[in-house]
Design a protein around this nucleic acid. Structure first.
Lengths: 250, 250
DNA sequence: TTCTTAAGTTAGTCTAGCCTAACTATAACG
DNA sequence: CGTTATAGTTAGGCTAGACTAACTTAAGAA
């Protein structure tokens, strides 16, 4: 029960609907680089004026940068939030398909509903469960008690998992280029930021879907050196913060 | 994504909020026999005028019988619906606690959010999963592939489950007295219906928390004979339909 | 039987989110 | 360089669902 509760998502109080908009913007940027009102309207199945309204609300909360007639940018906070939602979505979808065995097609819509109601704690355990169950193919035996003790102290009797593994299985782990450490590889999702900085980054070859590897980072992470399209490139931290990437661990 | 979708819960289109009200009424009746505006208001954490409004809306949809200044009754449809919601709620709570191992206290609120977004198909599988995993204590090995094939053809290699078991484990299976078959035992949850019929039933000993057993049912289920408080009682089907019970299988 | 009080209702307000209709900006093309 | 089509915005309206303030019922005490 418990009505009247504002949806408690960490500090920020985002409505169900605003979360949907944020997620849509994020997804569109990953696909198309830029998110325009029309795109969002299509993705969300609403009319354009509704999008305009939502963007103003999101801008008020400091989650997007919105200026009339321009394409939408995510702020740092907006990006963080959007990633959170996307992770919840992925976790739920993953659980529904790979554990419950529901068909991919049917799952998408349901995940959209469930993603808003999942607490961080549950999210964490859901991901761990998916990982634990699916760790080494469907035929590996699973004991609930093993999982429980794994949750507690991170021990897995079969030694296939460890507590500090990355719990995003068939999942995309997204972050900013500036967060990566040397040796990590990834794929560029999209470049955010206003026109001039975007232009510069794109000219350097930072375009969507391009793969790269981080070579070196200086003491304070500035500059950061990456290998991309066969070239070595050196970026300022302030620039790397505008590059949303997906980590690929091999 | 997919905004603009009316919450597709089977045929009836009930909003998130209306579902909450319905569930609250159901829970209160199970606890208190009667649900009054004040109770609902307390349970839902809203003010009384909001309840009045909601009751009118639910009455319009034919889910409750509402007359000003009187206590609320659930119609047949309302009861069915409420049970559905309660089951989703229980399934989610069960999963969160017994599989994910989250603490009881934290789970209640989250279940409230999730219960609205769960499809019948997912509900079914979630219950099966809880049952399958917990079938014989935490130490029983579980193979995802076994679960998957159990879902398909109802076969369990260890023979501990069968396809037509009742998939509500630590769960309350609630229904109407009129639905039960001879030999079934249960507990009276509450008696619905307007005053005269309620009065008669209560006088016969049909009060909340009383245990009973179904002895006989005539061809068309009318009358139905039960043993309650040491007496044998014969009820018309039309009366038994007003008695909400919880089945106890031993 | 009247009085008092708690429960319940009505009326009216507010906000979030959606909508349509009508206006405006931008960019692309002749 | 103006025209036009498309994208986007503003204005205004609607519904759901909450709220407060003020009125009404009903039930129990005097």
């Amino acid at each position: 029960m418990q009505r009247g509760r504002p949806f408690n998502r960490q500090d920020m109080n985002l409505s169900h609907s605003m979360e949907d908009y944020l997620e849509a913007i994020y997804n569109i940027k990953v696909r198309n680089q830029v998110a325009r009102v029309k795109d969002i309207s299509r993705e969300m199945n609403v009319r354009m004026p509704s999008v305009t309204g939502a963007l103003k609300a999101l801008a008020d909360k400091g989650l997007v940068i919105y200026q009339p007639y321009e394409s939408v940018e995510l702020t740092q906070a907006g990006l963080d939030h959007a990633r959170g939602i996307a992770h919840r979505h992925t976790a739920v979808r993953e659980f529904l398909t790979s554990v419950l065995g529901l068909p991919e097609e049917d799952v998408e819509q349901e995940a959209c509903g469930l993603e808003h109601a999942i607490s961080p704690e549950t999210l964490d355990r859901l991901l761990k469960l998916v990982d634990f169950i699916g760790a080494h193919g469907d035929d590996k035996a699973f004991r609930l008690s093993d999982f429980q003790s794994f949750l507690k102290d991170g021990s897995d009797p079969d030694g296939d998992m460890s507590a500090d593994v990355c719990y995003l299985p068939a999942t995309i782990k997204s972050t900013r280029l500036s967060e990566l450490c040397p040796g990590m590889k990834g794929r560029i999702a999209f470049v955010s930021g206003r026109k001039p900085i975007r232009k510069r980054l794109v000219e350097m070859g930072m375009t969507s879907d391009t793969h790269f590897e981080v070579l070196r980072t200086a003491p304070f992470g500035d500059p950061i050196e990456i290998k991309i399209r066969g070239y070595n490139l050196s970026l300022r931290r302030s620039e790397a913060e505008h590059v949303e990437v997906e980590v690929i661990n091999d």
